[in-house]
Design a protein around this nucleic acid. Structure first.
Lengths: 337, 337
DNA sequence: CATTTTCTTGCATACGTATTCAAAACGTGT
DNA sequence: ACACGTTTTGAATACGTATGCAAGAAAATG
C-alpha cells in the first residue's frame, strides 16, 4: 500500500549516471548532454520519479509557493479571483497556499506563511489590517495587496479605479433623475470603500448634488440588510442607493422588495460594485461597476514574477479601468431628444 | 530591504544552547526543561525566528500540506467548503495547497501534488475522472473524495445521502400534486448525479409515478439554461423540475421566468440540491436539499487526521444526512384535513 | 551517602536536492 | 600528433531541521 519514495539517487543508479546528472536533467538550462538527459528521463519515467519540491526549496530557496490570504469567500468576487490566480500561477510552475484569517489571529498568519518560505504573498481581501500588510512587506517577500491599497506600506497593490467607478455611478444616478441618493458603505477602514465613497461624492458634487443619507453594512449580508432598513425607516425614503459592493447589494434588494414591498427600479434604484456573476442573474439584474478581474490577475502575476525574478522588492501600484455595466436595477437616464 | 533569514542555529547561539535544544523547544512533546525552553523562546522572539517548515518536512516527512483539488469555483458550494476546510486544517497546523484542474491536465496535477510531498489529498469536485482518483490513491497518500464516490478505488469518500435526498424531493413533488415531473441532470458520469437521479426515480416509483422528461445540464449555467429550454419547447410543459444542483437551478429559474414568462411556483415548481447561500436569497427562494457542509468537513478532517496519524490508508466512506429545506419555489403539499 | 532511575543536553547524522569545482571528455584547427 | 577551448561529468558540500545516541545532571530511592 505504501510505495517507497523514489529519489534522484535511485534514478541515477538505474540510469548509470551520477545524482548530479539527474538533478541537471530536470532543470531547464543546465549543462547536460541530450544523450544523458534522455537516459535519465527514461529511467525516471520507469520509476515514477518526480523531483521533490521540498528538497529543492531547501537548497535553492525557491519553494514555488505563493501565499494567498483571504478573510472570507462568501462574496463571489474572491472565489473567482482565487480560481484565476491559481490557474495562472500553476501555468508558471507556482502554487497557491491558502490562508484564511479572522480579525483575531492576523499576526500568527504571517508567521505561518514565513514558515513555509513562500516566495510571494497576495492579500486578497478588503478586511485586512494595514499593520499586517506592513509586517508582510518587512519580510522582504514580494507582497501584493489585491483590491486594497495602503500608501504607507511598501507593498505593491492592484485595484480597479475605485474613485472613477464611484464617479461613474454618481453621474449615472443623477442623470437618471434621482433626488435622494444614499450610500451604504462597506467597512469604514477599507481603502476600497474609502475610494468608492470619495469618487461617488465627487461625482455627486460635480453635478451639484450631495449624498442624502448614509449607512454602514460592513461588507456583510446581514449588515447590509440592517443598513437598508435603517435608511428606509422613516416615511421619506431614498430614491437611489449605491451599495459599496454587489454582495451587499443583493441583500439590500431582498430587504427592499420583500420586507418593504418596494419595486426596483420603479420605487427605488440600486447600484452595486464588482459585477460578480450573480449580478447578471435574472433575479437581480444589478447595474454595477465591473472590476476587470482578469486584468487585475495579470497585473498581480506580473508584479510577483518580476519581483521574484529580480529579487528586488520595489513598490508598484496598478490601477485598472472600471466599467459601468447597465442593467435593470436602476432607472435609466432619460434619452436626450 | 531583505532581512537575513534567521535559523535555529542563530537562536541557539543567542540563547547559549545547542541547535537541538532549539528544535526541541519548538516541538510539542520533547524533552526540554521549562528553563531552557523559556530561554530559547525569548531568544527566538527577539530574532523573529520561526521554524522552517520546509526543512522540517525534509527530515520528518511531514509537510503539513493538504492538497485540495477543484475543477471550478463558480458553484458557491465549493468556495464555502474550501473556506471551512482551510480554517479547520489551519487550526490543526495544516494548510491547503490549492490545485485547479481542467479536463485536460489531470494526470500532471497528481505529479505536482506528489512533488510537494502533501500528506493528504481532498478531491472536491464532481467533475474529476475516476482514473485520477485511483492514481492518487495508489500513491499511498490518504485521499478523500469530497462530494463524490468511487467504489472501485481505495480512496475514502464523504458525501451527503444523495439517494435519500433525491427520494425526499420526489415525495415532496408528488405530494404537491405535480403530474409532469422532469429532471435536469448534472454530469452524466458523476456519482453525485447518478445517486440523486436514482433516489429521485425510486421516490417517484414508490408513489406510482415516473419521470416525465429528462435533460442534461452538465453542472454548468449555460448547459442548464439550454436544458430548460429543451424541456419546455413543446406546448405541453412539465409542471415541476428537479435540477441536480442549486447552481443550475438558478439558471433554470431565470430562463423560465424571463424567457418563457412562467411564474414560479404557480405555473411550474423548481427544486434544487445543495442549499448554497443564494438559495435563500429573495430572488430565488429555492426549495432544496441541504448538504450538511460542516458535518462533511468534520468527516473529511477526521478521516485525514486518522490516516495521517496511523500511517495506514484504509478506506472509509462517510454518508451524511440530507435535509429537505422548504422555501417558495415549489408548490406545497396540500394540508391534510 | 551510595546507587538507581529519570530528565536534559549536545554531538553527529540524515533528509533529497542544487550547485561549485576540478577533472575528464570532446571537438577543432594547426 | 599536439595544444587549446568548450562541454559534460562526478565528487563533495550545503540548505535548516529532527532525532538516535551517549553522556551528564538531577532527582529519587535505599
Amino acid at each position: 500500500m505504501k510505495r517507497p519514495k523514489v529519489t534522484s539517487g535511485d534514478v541515477a543508479k538505474l540510469a548509470q549516471v551520477s545524482q548530479s546528472a539527474v538533478s541537471r536533467s530536470f532543470s531547464q538550462d543546465a549543462s547536460v548532454s541530450a544523450d544523458t538527459r534522455a537516459k535519465v528521463l527514461k529511467a525516471a519515467r520507469k520509476l515514477g520519479y518526480r523531483p521533490n519540491v521540498i528538497a529543492r526549496a531547501m537548497i535553492s530557496g525557491r519553494s514555488r509557493l505563493i501565499a494567498v490570504l483571504v478573510a472570507y469567500l462568501d462574496n463571489q468576487f474572491y472565489p473567482i479571483v482565487i480560481e484565476q490566480l491559481s490557474r495562472a500561477l500553476q501555468e508558471r510552475g507556482f502554487h497557491v497556499l491558502l490562508f484564511m484569517t479572522d480579525t483575531g489571529n492576523q499576526d500568527s498568519v504571517v508567521q505561518q506563511m514565513m514558515g513555509y518560505q513562500v516566495e510571494g504573498i497576495v492579500m486578497a481581501s478588503a478586511e485586512l489590517s494595514s499593520t499586517l500588510a506592513r509586517e508582510c512587506a518587512q519580510t522582504g517577500i514580494p507582497v501584493v495587496l489585491f483590491n486594497r491599497y495602503a500608501p504607507s506600506s511598501p507593498a505593491s497593490s492592484v485595484t480597479s479605479d475605485n474613485i472613477e467607478g464611484g464617479r461613474l455611478l454618481a453621474h449615472f444616478l443623477v442623470e437618471g433623475g434621482h433626488k435622494r441618493i444614499a450610500f451604504i458603505a462597506g467597512s469604514e477602514d477599507s481603502s476600497t470603500n474609502r475610494d468608492r465613497e470619495a469618487g461617488f461624492y465627487r461625482g455627486l458634487a460635480e453635478s451639484g448634488h450631495t449624498v442624502w443619507a448614509r449607512a454602514v453594512g460592513n461588507y456583510s449580508f446581514e449588515g447590509a440588510a440592517e443598513a437598508a432598513r435603517q435608511l428606509c425607516a422613516s416615511k421619506i425614503k431614498p430614491d437611489a442607493i449605491f451599495v459599496a459592493n454587489d454582495h451587499m447589494a443583493f441583500s439590500v434588494m431582498d430587504v427592499l422588495r420583500n420586507e418593504l414591498k418596494l419595486r426596483i427600479p420603479n420605487d427605488i434604484s440600486i447600484v452595486g460594485y464588482d459585477d460578480v456573476p450573480e449580478a447578471s442573474w435574472g433575479g437581480y439584474n444589478l447595474t454595477t461597476i465591473k472590476q476587470p478581474s482578469s486584468q487585475m490577475i495579470d497585473a498581480t502575476i506580473s508584479i510577483l514574477m518580476e519581483q521574484i525574478e529580480r529579487e528586488s522588492v520595489s513598490r508598484r501600484a496598478a490601477v485598472l479601468p472600471a466599467e459601468l455595466i447597465i442593467r435593470q436595477s436602476a432607472r435609466l437616464p432619460k434619452e436626450k431628444p
